[in-house]
């Protein structure tokens, strides 16, 4: 009898104490390097004139222009920036391109991000060639683009800044001079979409989460949830 009573009590306690579906928030210090960020393949000519490409996820759109003025984007060079081939190349030429790959080119992008354009001997190695991709010179700036990727931004280096005291990382600040987009991504209104208008999942632009969990890593755009403004209509119309 006592055992049954104890079991029932335990069951009651467990039910009452069961965690509710809504979140229990845990607090941490340190660097939350885990949120999805944009995958940007930066192209620049090395001081030796070769086309080099490297992958960055720190950065994004900084500002849009007054009355259609300059759009500015950024990418962050980690560690000792002066040792980075991309940093040296962009500083020397004053220009670069930001190429946005689609999921179709995820393997190629990961290859570009996993090797340096500087081989152990110190000489240049052609990552783009190894990836089977094609470099095309920019129309407005002296920097190479990736022909196969759906979106490319030709950019002029405006500034590079240190952000954290005592850190050698730099944030590259770029003025966008020209934007190229695959026609399949352009809709009837002439606007660019983050995947082809036909909705092919392989055509989606790419995010990267630095989380090392099983589900960390690369992501694309998934299902569409709603348009900005429209999705919150009920709150503006009163309830």
């Amino acid at each position: 009898m006592r055992k049954i009573f104890a079991a029932l009590l335990a069951l009651f306690v467990l039910t009452v104490e069961a965690p509710v579906a809504s979140a229990e928030l845990l607090k941490f210090s340190g660097s939350p390097h885990l949120l999805p960020a944009p995958v940007m393949v930066v192209g620049a000519y090395t001081p030796g004139g070769q086309a080099n490409f490297a992958v960055f996820h720190r950065g994004g759109v900084l500002t849009s222009g007054k009355d259609g003025g300059s759009m500015r984007v950024s990418f962050g060079v980690k560690g000792d920036a002066e040792k980075s081939l991309t940093y040296q190349s962009v500083k020397a030429s004053g220009a670069c391109t930001i190429n946005l790959p689609s999921l179709k080119y995820l393997s190629e992008t990961d290859l570009l991000g996993s090797f340096s354009g500087r081989a152990p001997c110190g000489c240049f190695q052609d990552k783009l060639k190894a990836a089977g991709l094609t470099a095309v010179k920019g129309a407005e700036v002296n920097a190479p683009m990736v022909e196969e990727f759906p979106i490319s931004l030709e950019c002029e280096l405006e500034d590079d800044i240190a952000i954290a005291p005592g850190s050698k990382s730099r944030l590259m600040i770029l003025k966008v001079r020209k934007v190229w987009a695959d026609e399949a991504y352009i809709d009837a209104k002439g606007k660019i979409n983050p995947m082809s208008v036909s909705g092919d999942p392989d055509s989606s632009l790419i995010f990267f989460s630095h989380s090392h969990a099983e589900n960390g890593g690369y992501y694309g755009y998934g299902s569409f949830l709603g348009k900005s403004g429209e999705i919150s209509k009920r709150y503006r119309e009163g309830r």
Binding site: L103, N215, G217, F224
Partner: peptide
């Protein structure tokens, strides 16, 4: 754009 707005993430890609 027609597909501007809010999205879920896709399945993890690797």
């Amino acid at each position: 754009a027609e597909r501007s707005g809010h999205y879920a993430l896709s399945a993890p890609m690797g």
